[in-house]
Computed example of a mutant assay.
Amino acid sequence: MFKGLSNLASMMKQAQEIQGKMGEMQESLKSVHVEGEAGAGMVKVVVNGQQQVVSCQIEPSVLESGDREMLEELFVSAANQALDKSREAASSKMSELTEGMNFPGLQDALSNFTQK
């Protein structure tokens, strides 16, 4: 019986450690920047590790073409590529955070957290 309590106490301690590290990790994800591009680099979108668009660069020739539909498609493509990279980076950081901790279902729960 007491062995079970010891395991529970250990798990609670690990959970508290994770909670503290999660806050630090979320803050550090602001400084992670990844880039997506489309149209051979004519449109570039930079996203941080919190899946927030940080910047967008559009080649002047795309604007001058007047093809709004093409520009919209290029932007969406570049943004989606950057967001995918951002989720991968956040997931990787999450894996580093939980390395060596054995909580059933923890990885699934944390990957859902990074996709929000």
Score class of each variant (00 low, 15 high):
Val54Asp: 12
Glu27Ala: 08
Ser55Met: 04
Lys30Leu: 07
Glu24Asp: 14
Val46Glu: 09
His33Ala: 04
Gly36Cys: 08
Asn48Leu: 02
Met94Asp: 02
Phe103Ser: 08
Lys21Val: 12
Lys44Cys: 04
His33Ile: 11
Ala82Trp: 05
Leu63Arg: 11
Ala15Met: 10
Val76Pro: 06
Val32Tyr: 05
Gln51Tyr: 01
Asp84Phe: 07
Arg68Asn: 06
Val34Trp: 01
Asn48His: 04
Gly23Ala: 09
Glu27Gln: 12
Gly49Asp: 03
Gly36Val: 08
Met70Leu: 15
Ile18Leu: 15
Met101Lys: 08
Ile18Phe: 06
Asp84Lys: 13
Ala90Pro: 03
Val34Ser: 02
Asn80Pro: 12
Met94Val: 13
Ala82Gln: 06
Gln26Glu: 09
Asn48Glu: 03
Pro60Gly: 11
Ser77Pro: 00
Ala89His: 10
Leu63Tyr: 04
Leu63Ile: 14
Asn48Cys: 05
Gln81Glu: 15
Glu35His: 02
Glu24Ala: 11
Gln57Phe: 13
Ser92Glu: 14
Glu72Tyr: 07
Asn80Tyr: 04
Gly100Ser: 15
Ser91Val: 04
Gln52His: 10
Ser65Asn: 07
Arg87His: 00
Val43Asp: 07
Ser91Gly: 15
Gly23Val: 06
Glu69Pro: 07
Ser95Arg: 15
Met101His: 07
Glu96Gly: 08
Cys56Pro: 01
Glu27Arg: 03
Leu97Asn: 03
Gln50Val: 03
Val45Phe: 02
